[in-house]
């Protein structure tokens, strides 16, 4: 199996304002993720799991250590390259969906395609296809306020998959959803992974963690446990 992500001794320190001193959010994490894997990062609040996800996705930079995705160093990229990397190589799903309220579901999915300069006809077709994939074929022209939480998160997943990234990063994707909708989301993420997209998900949701192939436990900024769900 191809190695997709290689993180070595990644550390991230924050200077807290107001005399808060230095906070060591991530204290030397090394992690390998294979192509097609489905990894859940779990741990108590403040253990550094969301910070790790941000570092992997190139929206934050490590204080030291290295992160490689498909052989590309994410930690040393220039800002413009990191932006391009986030647009084309990874997809982000957030706990609070963060859809553009003024745009319809279709337009929200079109947004990263437009940024990637995909022709209008092609991007509309791709956005329709993705919304159908997440089960929202009938809700194309609805705006976020006209959609339920679960539907909004589906649109967010469709948006994350728009440019066919090999890696999907999800931060508490079921955090704002009820149990039933959460279960649907877990099923959808399983389907996305089954179709070949590697997923790294940060979660407190035990059901979601159980659905992953591999679970990494973090505490105080370090990985304390890393095991495959099949018992390996």
């Amino acid at each position: 199996m191809t190695r997709l992500l290689v993180a070595r001794d990644v550390k991230r320190d924050y200077h807290m304002g107001g005399g808060g001193g230095l906070v060591h959010a991530v204290r030397g994490v090394s992690l390998d993720v294979d192509d097609g894997d489905y990894l859940a990062v779990v741990g108590p609040s403040g253990c550094g799991k969301s910070t790790l996800l941000n570092l992997i996705g190139g929206i934050d930079r490590p204080s030291s250590g290295s992160i490689e995705i498909s052989g590309e160093r994410v930690d040393t990229m220039r800002d413009a390259d990191a932006t391009r990397f986030r647009l084309l190589r990874v997809g982000f799903v957030f706990q609070r969906f963060y859809l553009m309220p003024a745009l319809t579901a279709l337009e929200n999915v079109e947004l990263p395609l437009a940024e990637a300069k995909v022709a209008r006809k092609e991007r509309v077709a791709r956005a329709r296809e993705l919304l159908a994939y997440v089960g929202l074929a009938a809700r194309l022209d609805h705006r976020p306020t006209q959609l339920s939480g679960g539907e909004q998160q589906r649109v967010a997943i469709a948006r994350a998959l728009a440019n066919r990234p090999r890696l999907l990063l999800a931060d508490e994707p079921t955090g704002e959803l009820d149990a039933h909708t959460g279960a649907e989301m877990i099923s959808l993420l399983g389907q996305v992974n089954g179709d070949g997209t590697t997923i790294v998900v940060v979660t407190h949701d035990e059901d979601l963690a159980r659905a992953a192939k591999r679970v990494v436990h973090m505490r105080d900024g370090v990985v304390v446990d890393d095991r495959r769900q099949d018992g390996s």
């Binding site: 413009a80 932006t83 391009r84 553009m100 940024e115």
Partner: peptide, 16 residues
């Protein structure tokens, strides 16, 4: 700011 920062997070360029 939330909307702008999410746009940046999903890969919308600073110039945009």
């Amino acid at each position: 700011l939330g909307e702008i920062i999410v746009m940046r997070a999903i890969g919308v360029a600073r110039e945009r």
